[in-house]
Simulated assay, not measured.
Amino acid sequence: MTSTNERVAIVTGGSGGIGRASALRLAADGIAVVVHYHGNRDRADETVASIIESGGRAVTAGGDISEEESATTLFDVAEQEFGGVDVLVHTAGIMPLSPIAQLDLEEFDRVQRINVRGTFVVDKLAAQRIRPGGAIINFSTSITRLQTPAYGAYAASKAAVEAISLILARELRGRDVTVNTVAPGPTATPLFLDGKSVELIEQIANNNPFQRLGTPEDIAETVAFLAGPARWVNGQTLYVNGGAA
């Protein structure tokens, strides 16, 4: 176990695009990272290997973050390996697309379970165990403002995440812990690109003032800001989309 003076982060969904980029970016700032995965351990192991090769500290931990027992393990691993938890970056989520009229209700329930319950579970644990000076960083989406068809279930789940974050920021009064939400716009990750034609992707990219999609690294810069110097940013949703909305 290392010194409890070290800053330590848990990154859920750390095997994915934004989660991986966030883990790498935080490690570059000297933060020890617990890289969470659910179903893609190889990618999580690759992320950890990259951090260690660069001189950083990282371990993997798996599990379903919508289950309190599995999520608790993440915090246990952080404490056992690095001495505690200072930052939670909660990127894990799913985004199936369907018009509301055609969406199977079981699929709707799955989205809410992973995206809403999962956020509630990890935020609950972070509220109990994160150290003073810490930061909780949840993930929403710019779709809550863009109101794009076929994103109904996903947008509903992320609107709930924003509400949870806002309330938790107030509930942690006196704890010196910030709670914010990052709301990316269209970002070149497997979650976003899956199922879209090249033509549609180009159209979406050209709609942005920068005429491109965001990158996971773009989003990770905002994560690093909130995890470190942004102590006076609290209870906010930051739309990180290049001016798309």
Rank of each mutant, 00 (worst) to 15 (best):
R43H: 11
L74K: 05
D104K: 12
A58G: 07
V34I: 08
D218Q: 10
R175M: 00
L238Q: 00
P132W: 00
S70F: 14
L168Y: 05
A28K: 14
R170K: 14
G133K: 01
R212L: 13
D123Y: 10
R170D: 10
N180V: 01
S66C: 08
E202H: 14
P209R: 15
T119L: 05
L26G: 03
A224H: 08
H36E: 04
E171S: 04
I164R: 09
D104I: 06
E107M: 13
V33H: 04
A28G: 11
S22L: 05
G62I: 04
A205I: 13
A155K: 06
D86G: 01
G152C: 12
F210P: 14
R173V: 11
A160F: 08
A224P: 05
G133F: 02
N115M: 08
I136G: 00
I31E: 02
A183P: 02
P209A: 15
G133R: 00
L103G: 03
E46M: 11
A92T: 01
T187E: 06
T12L: 03
A58Q: 07
P216W: 12
R129W: 02
Q102M: 13
T4G: 06
F210N: 15
N241W: 00
L191D: 08
R173G: 07
A150Q: 14
I31K: 05
P209Y: 14
Q203E: 15
G118M: 10
A21C: 07
T60P: 06
L193Q: 12
S3R: 09
T12G: 03
S54L: 13
V59N: 03
E202V: 10
T2Q: 13
A245W: 14
G133H: 01
L166D: 10
I164D: 10
T148G: 04
T73W: 06
A23R: 04
V233Y: 03
R231H: 00
Q80I: 10
A150F: 15
G134T: 00
G17Y: 07
E69I: 15
R170C: 08
F139Q: 07
P96E: 04
D64P: 11
S140A: 10
A163V: 12
P99Q: 01
V111N: 07
Q236C: 07
E217G: 13
G235D: 02
A61P: 05
F120M: 14
R41E: 12
I10W: 03
R110H: 09
T141S: 11
G133L: 01
D42I: 10
A101E: 15
A21L: 06
V8Y: 02
G84H: 00
G19Q: 00
T189V: 13
A101Y: 09
T4H: 08
Q80K: 09
V240P: 03
M95W: 14
T189M: 09
D176Q: 02
F82W: 05
A169I: 02
V182F: 01
E69T: 15
I100N: 06
R20S: 08
G195P: 08
P190Y: 09
L168F: 04
A153H: 04
G14R: 04
Q102T: 11
P99H: 11
L105H: 12
V223I: 13
T73L: 13
S197G: 11
R20D: 06
D29M: 12
D64F: 13
F82E: 07
D218I: 11
I143Y: 08
